[in-house]
Design a protein around this nucleic acid. Sequence first.
DNA 1: TACACCGGCCTTTTT
DNA 2: GGCCGGTGTA
Length: 776
Amino acid sequence: MDYLKGLNEPQFEAVTTLEGPLMVLAGAGSGKTRVLTMRIAHLITNGIDPFNILALTFTNKAAKEMKERIAKLVGDSNARSLWMGTFHSVFARILRIEGHYLGYPSNFTIYDTQDALNVLKKVIKDLGIDAEIYKAKKVMSRISQYKNNLITVNAYFNNPELMEADERANMKHMGEVYRKYVEACFKNGAMDFDDLLLKTNELLTRFPEVLAKYQDRFRYILVDEYQDTNHSQYLIVKALASKFENICVVGDDAQSIYSFRGANIYNILNFKKDYPDAVTVSLEQNYRSTQNIVDAANVVISKNLQQFKKNVFSENEVGEKIKIYRSLSDADEANFVSANIYELHNTQQRHFSDFAILYRTNSQTRAFEDALRKKNIPYKVYGGLSFYQRKEVKDLLAYLRILVNENDSEALSRIINYPARGIGETTQNKLVVFADSQNLSVSQVLDNLGFYAPQLGLNNGILTKLGDFWAMIKAFQVMLKTDNVYDVAMEVAKRSGLIKFLKEDATPEGISRVENIQELLNSMQGFIDEQIQIEDGDPSLSNFMENIALSADTQTDKDDDTNKVSLMTIHLSKGLEFPIVHLVGLEENLFPSFMSSATREDLEEERRLFYVALTRAEKQVFFSYAVSRFQWGKITDAEPSRFLSEIDSHYLEMINPVAELKFINRSGLDSSIFDETPSEPRFYKKKEEKKTLERNTNVPPPKKTLKPVATARIINPAGQSSQDIEVGDMVRHDRFGVGKVEFLDGTDPQNIKAKVIFANEGEKNLILKFAKLTKI
DNA sequence: TACACCGGCCTTTTT
DNA sequence: GGCCGGTGTA
């Protein structure tokens, strides 16, 4: 048992306490994954059949990584018989086997968020209620809340409080919407993400024999990231574990970042109540990061009221301070980051794979991609608008979904007239209405089109088109019986007219759509190859569909991830580590997000997110923020994130000029950044505080009211007169945004020309008299 | 029936 | 800036 050597005391305890309930509180970087994998290995070496072990993770990435590490310890065949995966994928697998208890076919479709929203929109439309009030997204998140708290439609109607709450929210039809939505999904033979958990609960509660079967099977249960489980997941785990109580949960309350998905931090906080005999182990030594990083992170998280007390520490080197870069714009920020990576790559022989760029929202990727590409730095974007969510990809997949599950009316409506084949909205409505009236599915009507034709009220031309379409689908289905997934998909892409249609569009976007289709086909080929190699692999179409439905980021994982800069959201980065982290977009309303600044709870979750980001880094962290950002189609002013001011200044170091240090020093000491009305204006904040050129150059007075010059004095610590514009100055232009003055030309004050390089717009030559430049 | 155009809306994070 | 839904036109 060599692997036990090198564990510290609490780690050893966590690995070797095999029986009974165990809670491992694992601080960031404390070797959590190592403990989990070794624990599993230890179970197996102690004679436990891997078949009896269930390990649940939160992301596919985590599952995959852990499986690989376990395989190294205990061998491939042992690792393979483990049940390891995300909650959703494991229980989808179980529902495929047992779903018939609940009336679901084993080939049920899994709806992603978009599919579910489409179904919901139709429901709302059919009910004839105000779509302005019943916004699909809003309604969906309510439904999701219900489901995650096991409030079924019936339970809803038996719960006056809930109904009243919805009524107060001016949504008295919520129950009806919920009912119709659930019915529609059921009829389509489909489950949404929440259903995978809800239905599992239903299965385990209503059918004791099923529960007993899986209790006996999963004698040892491990749950990673337990702080991120929601109520539904909590109940599943509890039910499965109740027989043997060999349950080990691992988590860190400081890293709970999924409450928007229903994660309930009390699941971990109350573990001791559920299992009074539980052993608790705390892993507090951080082996990942420098002291500076760990200490700074501790300072940040200490601002949260709600947390377990713990003392995460590092005995690594002190390390460098966190460096902060203040940029003019998102583009400028991206250029800094790419230049910085380039330089460290050259001067410190860093691999590109040593770097991560972490951001709050996916929409921030674009600028970094551009900047990295310019410098020929290889990179990989994780997550984001997943490949499988692109329209053209979903379209082709919709054809394939129909082949697997004919009742999937969402897929059918997507493709029945795409590419256009003359089956318009009117026709589709007639079909749906008729099918509903006969209590049939549309596919059943299409199966017997000749028989129903007289009642449909459609002309012969349309009937022929419908017949042709359905014959094509049927032919694909026949083909699926003999041919492999790739060949069928290729045939679908060709015969449906999809490829031809996409190829007609010669714009870059159009070309990339064709490429995406090609890539989808390639990934199918890859899937087949992979499944054939695996013992008892399953290269079927339905297995392929399941794989992609539950994995946002599998996409082209085939290509080598070696030596590329990683770009991802902070959420995705959880559990990962990188020598050098760039944490970007540290601005108010972006991070913390404007959606999460309202309540203390929301803000604390943002802070935990910040903590997660910071603790990804091993050696060095770079923060950056932009004073203006191109978003929502225009340039928006931004101010630095409050999180920056929450870190003591001695952990920090400004990369660029003087003025910023002033800000950091001050805000390190007080919290004026929180004040609604700061005692003194901050130099970067409001337009009104910026200087103008009016006195010297006779520029027409700006339309906006300006504050007295006294403000400007504070803005400019060097004390030079506020009206001068000099080469090197940062200026703002009403239309072009923020830029830097490169060159001034002319002596006549009436006719001075300035060459300004704008962060977003590039180089412009401006006549000062006309260009209303504001010095910043 | 198909498509172009317009206007309003929003936009966090993931399974 | 991009998406969606509605509307007007060929």
